[in-house]
Design a binder for these strands. Structure first.
Length: 613
RNA sequence: GGCUUUGUAGCUCAACUGGAUAGAGUCCCUGACUACGAAUCAGGAGGUUGCAGGUUCGAAUCCUGCCAAAGUCACCA
């Protein structure tokens, strides 16, 4: 039982015995704010009705009783109805000892649950960019957090490796590529394919521009344009129709897609070749970010799945068929719309695939919980998907969760691929590492070690900066990505936290001890020391909260609090040259355990600690 | 237009899900290295929590109405 539970229970009992009635609401207990004396605060307002007394009086009576009856409570004060309880130093130092004895403090007991986390899930027609990075970091971090919370975790992605977009880059390469390969050009595979995707768009634009001066186009404009609509605006809006109905490139692309779907050998071979380039490129990016997956799903294998459920649902009346043969589901009673699940030609849509894929995954892993890390533009899609899964009776339907995150904006505005403002993942990673190298070189602390070791450290620092910068923001919120701030090494940043760790490593090394005697004689704690221990104390509940809410930003701010507190402690208290041997032992023990927790909790964000920096 | 989300210091973010005087970082001032690592610490300045009502002991948080931004309302993915 935790100390907060002890206090809660004791409060409940005390209220009952004092006022003859058990409180109906759950007891709220908070950490005491820094400007007041005490560790935990009981809010007495909710008891006023029951006790028929003023909050202050209740606070006094309750405080007295709790001090008498709970060993750990040594004193109290009441301010405006808030009862601040002081916890014995011995409780905190005993607690520190117990953390010290654990090798895996923070690891929560097994839940017996298996959770799947899907993240990244890119298209294979262009390189990964900043948006993917947020997705990847969130997914990876969530997986770590869920694991720490006692779950077995399976990390997967579904790769969007087929479809019209992929065919565009394939066609462009076929027509204009002249056999170019990553080897022949020296261009990283995913960038090379991306180059042809862009080229396709350029060629299409040219073709479209030319077409706009034909008679057909003219007639169309005069007939269909809205009043006052300029030629430019009209054709801009007409682009998709043009692609589908008039464009030669469009026709060829669609033909290629049909060939691919029919299993045409050449089409498949080209597809496999170009995809393999992309995968090798992605592999490099994932490696540089330090992430990996347990299983990859490919849309080319899953895009036909899900139809069985539609048939089954049709016979049960979950779905209905329109006259044209298309199949729909009516979700109006769930405040959603009617949604198409099968086209009139019998082919499936995105939704259908997702139904099938969920089922496939359940068969593969038996996971009753699945987390989809996907941008918030698909909120509605997942609402609908989850509702459908419920209605077709999937046994895991209640365990589906959409970890939705906001788009990333640049200080200059939205990222737009068309305007070339997209930040490439690889460039960004290289940049932050370079930045770490620059500052470190300026400092000169690492001059005496090998370049190889240094590079490792720069990489850790740079990645810490970028990862922490992104993960500290609540996923739900849109965030502004300022490149300059993302490589900051001071203040509320990853490197600041690493620095606390490095300082500890340095002190421990200088102290020359590998283990620390139990410092039971050290009985009167400095306030910074107590604060540090109370933060350590919170670690398990922070992990639990982060897992419950699928929110790494809680872990990030925990890390910052701990590091900040340690920096202050380090500044205020002498460790090796402490006043007494007991103080020295205690502080070494404290430092050692802070470093242990820092390291573990940064790993929950996918951030590694250097031993020096 | 309907629905969903967001709006907090100049800027980037918090606020334990209804609790005390709304906190950090950054920026701008000011102090602390012959110190266990100054990527640090301490102090100052900076706020009508988008606006207006309501609910109650108590609201950034819940309710209503506006305002602003974003997303979505495809036989696209």
């Amino acid at each position: 039982m935790t100390i907060t539970d002890i206090i809660k229970n004791a409060t409940k009992e005390a209220i009952t015995s004092l006022y003859g009635e058990s409180p109906s609401q759950p007891i709220t207990i908070n950490e005491t704010r820094k400007d007041f004396v005490g560790d935990f605060t009981v809010v007495t307002f909710p008891f006023t009705k029951l006790a028929k007394k003023k909050p202050d009086e209740i606070g006094e009576e309750l405080g007295k009783k709790l001090t008498e009856e709970v060993d750990q409570v040594t004193g109290y004060n009441v301010i405006k109805g808030f009862l601040n309880l002081e916890i014995a130093d011995s409780y905190w130092s005993n607690f520190l000892q117990s953390v010290n004895e654990l090798t895996d403090y923070g690891q929560l007991p097994p839940t017996g649950e298996k959770v799947m986390v899907e993240f990244s899930s890119p298209n294979t027609n262009k390189p990964l960019h900043l948006g993917h990075i947020r997705n990847i970091l969130l997914g990876w971090s969530c997986a770590q957090i869920l694991e720490a919370a006692g779950n077995e975790v399976v990390k997967v992605q579904i790769i969007n490796d087929r479809g019209i977009a992929i065919c565009k880059s394939m066609l462009a390469w076929k027509k204009f590529g002249e056999g170019e390969t990553p080897e022949s050009s020296g261009i990283k595979g995913d960038f090379l394919v991306g180059k042809y995707y862009v080229l396709f768009q350029t060629k299409l634009n040219e073709e479209y521009a030319e077409w706009q001066s034909t008679d057909t186009a003219d007639t169309l404009y005069t007939e269909k344009a809205k009043e006052g609509q300029s030629k430019e605006a009209f054709f801009k809006a007409y682009e998709k129709k043009y692609f589908n109905e008039y464009s030669d490139l469009g026709k060829e692309t669609k033909a290629l897609l049909l060939q691919w779907e029919a299993g045409d050998e050449d089409a498949r071979a080209l597809w496999e070749k170009m995809n393999s380039w992309v995968y090798s490129g992605f592999g490099t990016t994932y490696e540089s970010l330090g992430v990996s997956f347990d299983k990859l799903y490919y849309e080319s294998n899953t895009y036909l799945l899900g139809k069985d459920f539609i048939d089954d649902g049709l016979s049960k009346g979950t779905f209905y068929k329109k006259e044209d043969g298309s199949v729909w589901i009516d979700l109006e009673d769930a405040k959603l719309d009617h949604k198409l699940v099968l086209r009139s030609d019998g082919t499936s849509v995105y939704m259908t695939q997702d139904i099938g894929t969920a089922e496939l995954r359940y068969k593969d892993f038996g996971t009753k919980k699945m987390v989809y890390v996907v941008g918030d533009e698909q909120n509605y899609h997942f609402k609908v998907l989850f509702e459908i899964m419920k209605r077709i009776g999937a046994p895991y339907a209640d365990g589906l969760y959409h970890l939705s995150y906001g788009m990333i904006d640049l200080p200059t505005g939205k990222m737009k691929s068309r305007e070339g403002t997209v930040v490439d993942a690889d460039d960004l990673v290289a940049e932050v590492i370079q930045e770490a190298r620059n500052s470190s070189t300026e400092r000169g602390d690492l001059d005496h070690i090998s370049e190889e070791e240094r590079s490792e450290i720069y990489k850790k620092i740079g990645l810490a900066a970028i990862k922490y910068f992104i993960l500290k923001v609540n996923p739900q919120k849109r965030m502004v990505f300022n490149p300059q701030e993302s490589v900051d090494l001071q203040g509320d940043t990853g490197p600041y936290i690493q620095n606390a760790f490095v300082r500890i490593k340095s002190v421990l090394q200088k102290a020359g001890q590998s283990s620390f005697p139990l410092a039971t004689e050290y009985t009167s704690l400095e306030s910074v020391e107590r604060e540090l221990i109370t933060i350590l104390h919170k670690f398990p509940e922070v992990i639990q909260a982060a897992a419950d809410h699928y929110d790494p930003s809680l872990i990030a701010s925990f890390n910052f609090d701990l590091a900040k507190s340690y920096h202050k402690f380090y500044h205020d208290c002498k460790i090796i040259t402490a006043e007494t041997p007991e103080a020295k032992d205690f502080r070494l023990l404290l430092s050692s355990n802070v470093s242990k927790v820092l390291e573990k909790s940064m790993l929950l964000l996918g951030i590694e600690m250097p031993n020096r920096m």
